[in-house]
Design a protein around this nucleic acid. Structure first.
Length: 425
RNA sequence: GGAGGCAUACCCAAGUCUGGCUGAAGGGGUCGGUCUUGAAAACCGAAAGGCGGGUCAAACCGCGCGGGGGUUCGAAUCCCUCUGCCUCCUCCA
């Protein structure tokens, strides 16, 4: 959410910056009128309330002196009715205004490249050497089928499409990756580990920005106003919702494992095979709370922390700086880390690292106090995947595949795999 | 699932029965001082505190006692409703 005063005072400038996102900005047009009406109503109603408070004291005094208060009471009866009327309209206006404010995306940072879609994203860096195969490389789902470690067919029977059973050593690989990533971030990068609830309420999804606008993308529980989390970002960021940090509490950084659930509305027909796009997938998430002046430096280290996972696993990747048209609703700046997927001869997103500045903090009311008697300020929040586990499995299976159909286990992972070096039938 | 209790500011906590000098007491904490080699303790003193309107900034005004609604001239206080927490019983991995 943007600051209303800032939006009011910089309307044209904000509008121009948001236009680069290529989103529908019709909501924005209604802001000025509603904002104006709101402030008029507030001053009118508050004037009446001041009058009422004054009269209330007099009535109290009159009664104490056993004098007749009836004329004053009679007059106030009318004032009270008027206040009720104004308050009702004000409430309506404020609800509309709030909905508009919650539906306006974040302002892109000045360093974000201007562009329309993913073709305009800018390469930040590349790492690693692409594997060279002296045989026809296979897709990860074909490799997995031969090794009997993933079962999509039975998952379709048990649940539906875009679900999977991990089996045998495939399960072990997934589990090993989760531990490996968590250990790296907790022990070497200094994050505090978390295992969050995987079901959250409406307030949490509003706090991080998935609601009200993107209700279609999340699974909702029937009979409950609860939702399956689309990412651990939601519970972990909202862990500090409605809280005030003292300045020495910052920065705070958490790493959290969770399953993630996404309806994938609108992606029918895309990535229908394999692990790339599932309704349920595991992810290790990184979440930071920082002082405003630190957040852009933190975005770089956060991205570096996520990259470290791929480096340790020796998987080739590139980092893309997302252009204004591909930023997503909440981010002011975002890097995607994309891992090489040989069978598709392309890089695929495996981590998304964003600085939200105070966009989420304002929605979720997460603040800090710089000095004991100082003003409250919003913190900046950031998060990134570190990493998406299923996609990492896909990348390992494909990049480490051998001619005989076996898959070599990356060295860094072997201690987590009972010392195994290779997955074979 | 059954029975009862609780929710007040950064924290603790009075006020709720009996609506109106509560413009939310008091304490802790915070800040300054005395004392001390330094600190702690004790004592003295002080400020401030959330949200909105307003202003260059103030002044000023309104709101705020878990959320929402109602009664009333007036609600922390009365009524309805929702949520969360605690205790006991029941059940359960």
């Amino acid at each position: 959410m943007l600051d209303m005063k800032f939006l009011r005072n910089n309307f044209q400038e904000v509008k121009e910056k948001l236009a680069h996102r290529g989103e529908d900005l019709s909501e924005l047009e209604r802001f000025g009128e509603l904002d104006e009406r709101r402030r008029t109503l507030i001053s009118e109603t508050e004037m009446l309330k001041a009058k009422r408070n004054e009269a209330s004291k007099q009535i109290s005094a009159l009664k104490k002196e056993k004098k007749d208060a009836e004329p004053a009471i009679k007059e106030m009866r009318e004032v009270g009715a008027k206040i009720k009327e104004f308050d009702a309209e004000l409430k309506e206006i404020e609800e509309s205004l709030k909905l508009i404010m919650l539906s306006i995306p974040n302002i892109p940072h000045e360093s974000v490249p201007i562009g329309e879609d993913e073709d305009d994203n800018v390469l930040a860096r590349k790492w690693g050497n692409l594997p060279v195969f002296d045989f026809d490389e296979k897709s990860h789902w074909d490799i997995a089928a031969e090794l009997d470690i993933l079962d999509f067919e039975r998952a379709a029977k048990v649940t539906g499409s875009r679900f999977v059973f991990y089996k045998g050593i495939g399960t072990r690989l997934e589990r090993a990756l989760i531990s490996f990533m968590m250990d790296l971030h907790a022990d070497e990068h200094g994050y505090t580990e978390m295992m969050p609830p995987q079901i959250v309420n409406r307030g949490s999804l509003t706090g991080t920005g998935q609601l009200p606008k993107f209700a279609k993308d999340v699974f909702k529980l029937e009979e409950w106003d609860y939702f399956l989390i689309p990412t651990a970002e939601v519970p972990v960021t909202n862990f500090h919702r409605d809280e005030i940090f003292s300045v020495e509490d910052l920065p705070k950084k958490y790493t959290a494992y969770s399953a993630n659930f996404r309806s994938e509305a609108g992606s029918a027909g895309r990535d229908t095979r394999g692990l790339i796009r599932q309704h349920q997938f595991n992810k290790v998430e990184l979440v930071h709370f920082t002082k405003p002046e630190d957040s852009y430096g933190t975005l770089e280290t956060l991205t570096g922390d996520a990259e470290k996972v791929l480096q340790r696993l020796n998987l080739p990747y590139r980092v893309m700086s997302m252009c204004t048209g591909d930023l997503g609703f909440t981010a002011a700046k975002k890097y995607d880390i994309e891992v090489w997927i040989p069978s598709q001869e392309t890089y695929r997103e495996i981590s998304s690292c964003s600085n939200f500045e105070d966009f989420q903090a304002r929605r979720a009311s997460i603040r800090f106090r710089r000095e004991a008697d100082g003003k409250l300020e919003f913190v900046h929040t950031l998060n990134g995947s570190g990493l998406a586990v299923g996609r990492t499995v896909a990348a390992i299976l494909e990049n480490y595949q051998q001619k005989d159909g076996s898959v070599v286990i990356p060295e860094a992972l072997r201690p987590y795999m009972g010392g195994k070096h290779v997955i074979k039938t």
